[in-house]
Amino acid sequence: MRRPAPEPVQIVKQRRDAALAALVGGVPYMQFMGIGVDRRGDELTATMTYDEKLIGNPLLPALHGGATAAFLEVTALIEISWAMLWNDIESGAIDIETLVDGTLPRLPKTIDFTVDYLRSGLPRDAYARAKVTRSGRRYASVQVEAWQDNRDKLFAQATCHFLMPARTSGAQ
């Protein structure tokens, strides 16, 4: 048996980066919040760049709980969308040109979102990673962790449930 030759690395990266940019770039609210996403292989890390408008308690000062919640929610939604699209991105079933034009497939919808505030958010950049703990045909569960200076000291964590879009095409 012969393995097919692997695709050149730049082609693979270009396709993955284009898909991620399409998922992230077109969302006004993410720009408003200063949220960006970095990729290593299939692993995503979201960053919320510090800005004065994210402050909730000017006396401490501390990040607004709502800003923290929104950051975790954005991260969870991007992760579940990314996980849903990954196979189609890798196989080339998704046309990257269409994605770049801003035509996204239907994305999962948030059903509920529970956030735990573990310590107050400091006035500096925040990072978050999400993990899809279960992704079914109709529902998915996602966990998210957020930290600032120290990866082991989470300042917030969350659990989210998503309603998955109905798969219409021949894709499984």
Binding site: M33, A70, E73, V74
Partner: peptide, 8 residues
């Protein structure tokens, strides 16, 4: 609008 804004 994004769910995050509603959360805030």
């Amino acid at each position: 609008i994004h769910g995050g804004a509603v959360s805030a």
